[in-house]
Computed example of a mutant assay.
Amino acid sequence: MGVDFSGPEARAALGVVAPFDMELDAELLRWLPDDVDMLMTRTPFVDDVVTVEFAREVADEGVVADGVRSVTAGRAEVVAYACTSGSFVRGRAGQESLLGVMRGAGAGEAVTTSGAIVEALQALGVRRVAVATPYVPTLSHLLDSFLGEYGVSVTGHDGLGLEQRIWEVPYAATAALIRSVDSSEAEAIVVSCTNLPTYDLIAPLEAELGKPIITANQATMWAALRRLGRRPTAPGQALADH
């Protein structure tokens, strides 16, 4: 019997533009269905720790546009900018301007992490959230303001105060942070930063706390895959059903 050389079959492609220090490519891939490829590029190196100024630099519109062009040179029509702070640091107007820049650079559909978090909350019908971040306070509280611009109120907030190496935060520390911000007033918990590992925490903590947990990487992949007509691979995670 001869070898079948009729393949490979056409596959969908998701483009991702991430900051140069992104360490969690493997976590993003865990949400990816088997029939979708992830085409990823990084922004240029910035010699700074994670501060408000850092977030502004990695989200420079020209830099993001270059990243979009590099992933849309091939098959990627849906592109995600995978950085929470970079997409909320200039508020709602900045996030929406970034989407326009991404479309202008060739993205048929554009998503930012902060915009995806808002989209996820809207899909779940959530208006009151607790917020957990790994950032320093000056950066961290800009997320509260950003959510407020979309009609989402913050019932409680806590952060780890980190300026670097956020990807090294252990699950136990993140779980403790999530539990510390939860309250009866919060309808869901938002966990910021695409460099903070969360995949294995979401389903068990949702079961424990009885409410959705929306994390940066989860929301980014959910919103981007939604535009491809796909569902994320996310057993037990509440957002995956919406």
Rank of each mutant, 00 (worst) to 15 (best):
V3I: 14
V3C: 13
D4L: 13
D4I: 10
F5K: 06
P8W: 11
P8S: 04
E9W: 07
E9S: 12
A10G: 02
A10I: 13
R11H: 11
R11K: 15
A12F: 05
A13H: 13
A18L: 12
A18N: 03
E23N: 12
E27P: 01
E27K: 01
R30N: 04
W31L: 12
W31Y: 15
W31C: 09
D34T: 07
V36G: 00
D37E: 14
M38Q: 06
L39T: 13
R42A: 08
T43Y: 00
F45M: 07
D47H: 10
D48E: 15
V52Q: 09
E53A: 14
A55M: 13
A59T: 11
D60L: 02
G62C: 06
G62Y: 00
V64R: 00
A65P: 01
G67E: 03
S70D: 07
S70V: 02
R75E: 11
R75W: 10
A80Q: 00
Y81V: 07
C83A: 11
T84R: 07
S87E: 03
S87Q: 07
Q95E: 15
L98K: 00
L99W: 04
G100I: 03
V101Y: 09
G104T: 02
A105M: 01
G106P: 01
A110T: 05
T113L: 03
G115H: 02
A116Y: 06
I117L: 08
A120K: 04
L121K: 09
A123I: 04
G125D: 11
G125M: 09
V126S: 10
V126F: 09
R127V: 11
V131I: 10
A132N: 05
T133Y: 02
T133H: 02
Y135S: 04
V136P: 00
P137E: 15
L139E: 11
L139C: 08
L139V: 06
S140E: 14
D144S: 13
S145K: 11
L147A: 13
G148V: 10
Y150F: 15
Y150Q: 03
V154R: 05
V154C: 03
G159F: 13
G161D: 13
E163G: 15
Q164A: 15
V169F: 09
A176V: 06
S180E: 04
S180P: 03
D182H: 04
E185N: 12
E187T: 06
A188Y: 07
V191E: 00
V191K: 00
C193Y: 09
C193P: 03
L196P: 00
I202H: 07
A203Y: 03
P204R: 06
G210C: 07
G210W: 08
G210F: 09
K211R: 14
K211G: 10
I213L: 15
I214T: 09
T220F: 05
M221R: 14
W222D: 01
A223Q: 13
A224Y: 03
R226H: 15
L228Y: 00
R231P: 02
T233E: 14
G236M: 02
